[in-house]
Nucleic acid binder design. Structure first.
Lengths: 136, 136
DNA sequence: ATTTGTACTTACTTATATGCAAGTACTTAC
DNA sequence: GTAAGTACTTGCATATAAGTAAGTACAAAT
């Protein structure tokens, strides 16, 4: 008698997972491709929307603000809009967001080392790092 | 005269991006939802396929195997198969993968702290951490 | 002959992420 | 009255990720 596999419980398991695995908790908040990149670019201090866009040339405007909104909703970044025209909006890391500094910094360190060992160093060095705690 | 926006260069920019931003480099390797979670579960030491599956109840076999193959191709994990029946396969972190330890550990630390501050502590504490360097 | 155990594999469907191109709002400067 | 400047917003198309439900291989044990 052929048994039915229980993939059906996966959805329920997934809901419980973030209560057990810390990294799962992190992924629920900053999982995906863009969020860590955006956060990294805010690590050096607050930036205006346009600055952020220029410093991440690979992202589309849609993705950028979509993720900024999400990050704001998750209390990782803070949005401050001056009521002027043309608009003036700055984004910065919240307390939670700032606390991700060590994670992002560890990533940067790994990237530099790993790319070197693969004979593809893309970054001379982490000049000016760590910017952690330098919060503007 | 209305100007055409240059979203068209995004693809080219994206190719160049990983040569400029270290976090982008990292995302190309472990971006997404599952990879960091899988790596985290290998941090404590090598595991058989089945053990890995049990320790990550939220993942489907398809995702697990697919990401394991990808991680192997990216030299982050090592697959060792004993030529026996039934099969016996173990996965462990490579040198590069092990070097991600600090990143994953920083994530775990942040998760515990952040979940506490949001009144949703999911993990008593990081008992037994760090397992870094404990490589079996 | 059938079941058991382990590590996958496959086909099909659905969901989510991302890309692309364009438009909007509002005020100041020209 | 038209252009510039900034921060979005929207609709449609495509690409990638993920879920579901099966099946396969092979030898040993029953």
């Amino acid at each position: 008698m052929t048994q039915v596999k229980e993939n059906s419980t996966i959805q329920e398991n997934k809901k419980l997972a973030h209560e057990e695995c810390p990294v799962t908790y992190v992924m629920e908040k900053i999982g995906g491709y863009w969020k860590p990149i955006i956060l990294f670019h805010l690590l050096a201090g607050s930036k205006r929307y346009g600055e952020l866009r220029k410093s991440i040339p690979g992202i589309t405007e849609k993705m950028l603000i979509q993720h900024l909104k999400q990050l704001e909703a998750d209390d990782l970044v803070i949005r401050i809009a001056k009521p002027v025209v043309p608009p003036h909006v700055t984004y910065s890391l919240s307390k939670s967001g700032t606390a991700l500094g060590p994670v992002l910094y560890a990533m940067a360190v790994w990237a530099v080392k790993d790319s070197k060992e693969n004979n593809k160093p893309f970054f001379k060095d982490l000049e000016g790092f760590p910017p952690i705690g330098k919060q503007v």
